[in-house]
Amino acid sequence: MPANKKYLTPSPWQRFAKISAAILGGLIVALMFHLALASWFNHVAVIITSTFTAFILWAILMVIAFLGKNGWKIWGIYLLISLVLFVIFYFGNQTNPLV
C-alpha cells in the first residue's frame, strides 16, 4: 500500500534537511547531552550508561525530526540545544577538571 501523497514532503531540500537533522543533528544532541552529564557527575558511570541511553535518545530525536514540518527549523533547534549543552559541558569542565 503506497503512502498518501499529502503526507510526503514535496521539496527535496526539506527531505534532505529532515534526514540530515535526524541522523547528524540527533547524534550531536545525544552526544552533547552525555558529555554535559559527564562533566558534572561521575564521568565513568555516565560513559558506561551512555552506551545504551545515547542510542535511545538518538532514536527519539530521529523520530522528532521527522514529525516537524520544516527540516531547517529542526536543524536550528538541534543546534541551539547542542550549543546550550556545550556551554554546560564547558563550565562543568572548568568547575570539575578531570586532570
Rank of each mutant, 00 (worst) to 15 (best):
A22P: 02
L24E: 09
F66Q: 00
L79N: 03
F33L: 12
P10E: 09
A3M: 06
G68D: 07
V63Y: 11
L57K: 01
T49A: 10
N96S: 05
S82D: 01
M32H: 08
K18A: 05
L27N: 10
P12V: 09
I74Y: 00
F66R: 04
Q14A: 06
V63C: 11
H34S: 02
K69Q: 10
N4K: 06
S11E: 15
A54I: 00
F66N: 00
N70P: 05
W13Y: 15
V99F: 08
N93I: 11
Y90C: 06
F16I: 10
W72I: 08
L57Q: 02
I56F: 09
I56W: 03
L8E: 15
L57C: 01
A21I: 05
I77L: 13
A54S: 15
N70S: 12
F86S: 05
A59Y: 14
W13H: 12
I23E: 09
A21C: 07
A65G: 03
H43M: 15
L31M: 14
N96V: 06
T51K: 08
F41M: 12
F55A: 14
A36R: 09
T9N: 12
G26Q: 01
F91W: 10
I60H: 03
N93F: 08
A65H: 00
A17C: 11
K73Q: 07
G25K: 02
L31S: 15
M62C: 12
K18R: 12
L24G: 10
M1D: 02
V29Q: 00
S50Q: 09
V44L: 13
K6S: 09
I48D: 13
P97V: 03
I48Y: 13
Y78P: 04
I28W: 10
A21N: 06
N70Y: 08
Y7M: 00
G25S: 02
F89I: 02
K5A: 12
L83H: 00
L83Q: 03
I74S: 01
S20L: 11
A45Y: 13
A3P: 05
W40D: 02
K69D: 13
Y90P: 03
F52P: 04
L31I: 13
A21R: 00
K18L: 09
M32K: 12
L31D: 12
T51G: 15
L98Y: 08
F41Y: 15
